[in-house]
C-alpha cells in the first residue's frame, strides 16, 4: 500500500482558519461588547440572529452565501462589477463564509467573559477618571482574556473543521479552496479509504491538541483571575 500525504489542503485549512480568526477577533469583540453592556429593545432578537449559524445546517448557510454572492443578488452583482468575478470559488470567499459560520463561536465566549467582569472593577475605573475606552483596554479586556483566548481557539478549530459551507461555495479548487475536510471527503468518495483515514487521523490529532490547550488555558487562567 502506497501512501503519500498531500499537505496542501491542510495548509489551506490553516491559512483559512488563521485569516478567519484574525477577522473575527476584530469583528466579534465590538459585537460582544455591545451585547454584554448595552441594553436595547429587541436585544434577544439580535442575539438570536448571531447564534443562528450554530443551529443552521452548514450546507444551508453555504447555500445562502452562494445565492448572496451570485448574480441574482444586488450585493453579488455589485461585487462582480468591481472585481470582475464572483466571490464564490475564491479564498476570500471562503473567509467571508467562515466568518459567518464561526461568528457565534467567537462572540459567545467573549460576551460571557465581558459579562463576568466584576462591575465594581469597572465602576472603580470610571470613578478614578478612566473614560470608556480606557476602562475597556485597561480593565475589561485584561480581565476577560480567558474568554478571548477561548473565542480565538474555538473559532480557529471550528473553521478547520468546516465542511458543508465550503462544499457549497468553494468549488474544490486545488491550492485555492480545496480544504482538508473536502480533500478527505473526496478520498472517501474515491474509495481511497487508507488515504482518508490518514487525513482523518491528522485532523483528529490536531483537534485534540487544540481542545487540550483550551482546557489547559482555562484552568490555569481561572486560578490566576478569581471571579
Amino acid at each position: 500500500m502506497q501512501l503519500h500525504m498531500d499537505w496542501l489542503p491542510f495548509i489551506i485549512s490553516f491559512k483559512l482558519a488563521f485569516a478567519t480568526t484574525v477577522c473575527l477577533l476584530f469583528l466579534a469583540t465590538p459585537v460582544a461588547y455591545i451585547l454584554a453592556y448595552k441594553g436595547f429593545r429587541g436585544k434577544p432578537l439580535v442575539e438570536a440572529v448571531f447564534a443562528l449559524p450554530i443551529v443552521l445546517p452548514p450546507t444551508v448557510l453555504g447555500f445562502f452565501v452562494l445565492i448572496a454572492v451570485g448574480n441574482m443578488s444586488p450585493v453579488g452583482r455589485w461585487y462582480q462589477n468591481i472585481f470582475g468575478h464572483t466571490l464564490a470559488f475564491t479564498f476570500e470567499g471562503l473567509i467571508v463564509a467562515s466568518i459567518l459560520y464561526s461568528f457565534p463561536f467567537a462572540v459567545q465566549p467573549i460576551q460571557n467573559a465581558f459579562e463576568g467582569v466584576n462591575p465594581r472593577l469597572v465602576d472603580t475605573a470610571r470613578t478614578l477618571g478612566c473614560n470608556r475606552w480606557q476602562t475597556f483596554w485597561r480593565v475589561i479586556l485584561p480581565a476577560s482574556r480567558r474568554g478571548i483566548v477561548m473565542g480565538i481557539m474555538l473559532s480557529f478549530a471550528h473553521t478547520v473543521g468546516e465542511f458543508g459551507v465550503v462544499l457549497m461555495v468553494g468549488g474544490s479548487i486545488p491550492g485555492e479552496t480545496k480544504v482538508a475536510s473536502i480533500a478527505l471527503y473526496e478520498n472517501v468518495e474515491m474509495l481511497e479509504y487508507s488515504q482518508a483515514a490518514l487525513m482523518a487521523l491528522a485532523l483528529l490529532v490536531f483537534s485534540y491538541a487544540v481542545l487540550s490547550v483550551v482546557y489547559y488555558f482555562n484552568r490555569r487562567t481561572s486560578t490566576l483571575v478569581p471571579g
Partner: peptide, 20 residues
C-alpha cells in the same frame, strides 16, 4: 476555468445561482 461541484446537481447550482 473549472470549478468543481460534488456532483452534477451542485455544478448546476453554481451556474444556476450565477456564480459560474
Amino acid at each position: 476555468k473549472f470549478v468543481y461541484g460534488e456532483n452534477v446537481s451542485q455544478a448546476f447550482n453554481f451556474a444556476r445561482t450565477g456564480n459560474a
